[in-house]
Design a protein around this nucleic acid. Structure first.
Lengths: 172, 172
DNA sequence: CTATCCGATTGCATTTTGCAATCAGTTGCA
DNA sequence: TGCAACTGATTGCAAAATGCAATCGGATAG
């Protein structure tokens, strides 16, 4: 499978890669949610993707060079999906999409806190995050000093904090 | 028409707005190509959009608050479409999409030179461009000093330069 | 032995898209 | 006045994509 190439315009070609309702959602869950397995992506996604669509998109994203698949050594039937450098460099796009959506669309606070953190951190934080993803998915040596909290930890902590605050607001 | 709201995630909601093959192409032609009329969008797009799809997307983008429509005083049948602030703030997303596509996809040089210029100019150039779009589409006073070449002029000049150089390469 | 989990695949109904033809009203020109 | 060209669309129809539920054979845990 390859893209249609309706034109050689970079924006058009980018849209041909992930200008559909699911490809970028899957990549979002892998990048920000840390999901690597079929079932994690199937059941973990808030939006409820169908299994046939998920299978099709994973295949497509592999053929386009955004993902790779490998056997999970812990389980003969499990496949583990990894992001390629091509997919990791989508982080700035994700950050901008999140920032725009947060301003203009009816987002929920729990889910937009990550976009806010990513926006506030700016390009340096994006770089740190991409470095971590290269470490996780490509086995690259991490350049961040030991002891530094990972971006994913920060994102998770920010999310938990909002959820806890909301729960408290209900009980009081 | 409103979006489905499969989830309150900013990235998901952004995708629900322009996660299809045409909406962002139309906005690209309006933003970078300066097109404001139905026929300009129909015939000018490199990708060849069908008229029914164009009509549908224009309607949808209006309902979502990204475009407005007004009568063209010069012609009783002409409609002129304008970008809203919501659409103008897509410029950073367009820039990132273009930058990513330029690196990873088989873009043509003529069409990617604009993405390159936008990338090199960075956020300050994006801001200047958005200011110009607010002037053109919203009637806002322009903050750029008189005499400064507009971003669209720069984009056009860069494009012409590449085309001319290519033509020369053929004849020599 | 069996219930559960694994990554998918199948069949089918619904929705979206692509394409060509066409619409009624407006305009420019002879 | 007449007529061709142009305006923003709309219609009908075929093809493709999507959504949904059920199911597959193999692997694993108890």
């Amino acid at each position: 499978m390859s893209i249609d190439r309706r034109s050689g315009c970079p924006i058009n070609l980018s849209l041909e890669v992930f200008g559909d309702r699911w490809s970028l959602i899957i990549l979002r869950d892998m990048i920000f949610g840390g999901r690597r397995h079929f079932r994690e992506l199937l059941n973990g996604s808030l939006e409820g993707i169908a299994s046939n669509i998920l299978a099709d998109r994973l295949k497509r994203l592999m053929e386009l060079g955004l993902l790779t698949k490998a056997d999970d050594p812990s389980h003969k039937q499990k496949a583990i999906y990894s992001l390629t450098e091509m997919a990791i460099t989508l982080v700035p796009i994700m950050a901008q999409l999140g920032a725009w959506g947060r301003v203009w669309l009816p987002v929920t606070e729990e889910l937009s806190i990550r976009a806010e953190l990513l926006e506030k951190g700016g390009p340096p934080l994006w770089e740190q995050f991409m470095d971590e993803l290269r470490h996780e998915h490509l086995g690259a040596p991490s350049k961040t000093p030991p002891g530094t909290p990972t971006v994913r930890q920060q994102l998770r902590a920010a999310y938990e904090e909002v959820v806890a605050r909301k729960a408290e607001a209900v009980t009081t």
